[in-house]
Amino acid sequence: MSLSKRIIKETQRLAEDAVPGISAVPHDDNLRYFDVTIDGPSQSPYEGGVFKAELFLPDDYPMTPPKIRFLTRIYHPNIDRLGRICLDVLKSNWSPALQIRTILLSIQALLGAPNPDDPLANDVAQAWKQDEQAAIQTAREWTEKHAKP
């Protein structure tokens, strides 16, 4: 399958002009498939953690959004057990003018600002709303346990 100029350019820019705390490297044998790492934002319960994710550009990208999933376990009201992420720009609010870089930045921002009112992981959201301090503590512990190299 031919790779569009857009994907080639995006990949180049991701390598040449990297975003601090984010990396996305395409597989050699499938240039639509990226290994992603996102550093937990400072002053969040994910600080110090390095979260692995996989990102895939579907065949009709950029008409449809990239598919992305966390591989590292993470305690977050908008990320479920399978690593799926509830984020509007990955769904109905996707626009072809967005790009891999902006999506990864949005996800990093989501780590810094969990939104238990729009949950994907209901139990986590519940815990978050009932006792935010305890939930944040759990998130920290999970970061310590799963996201430290």
């Binding site: 569009s4 100029k5 857009r6 350019k9 995006e10 950029p62 072809p96 003018a97």
Partner: peptide
């Protein structure tokens, strides 16, 4: 100048 501003934001060409 044209090259700078006439890139399509969908296909990057």
């Amino acid at each position: 100048a044209a090259g700078e501003v006439t890139n399509c934001l969908v296909c990057y060409n």
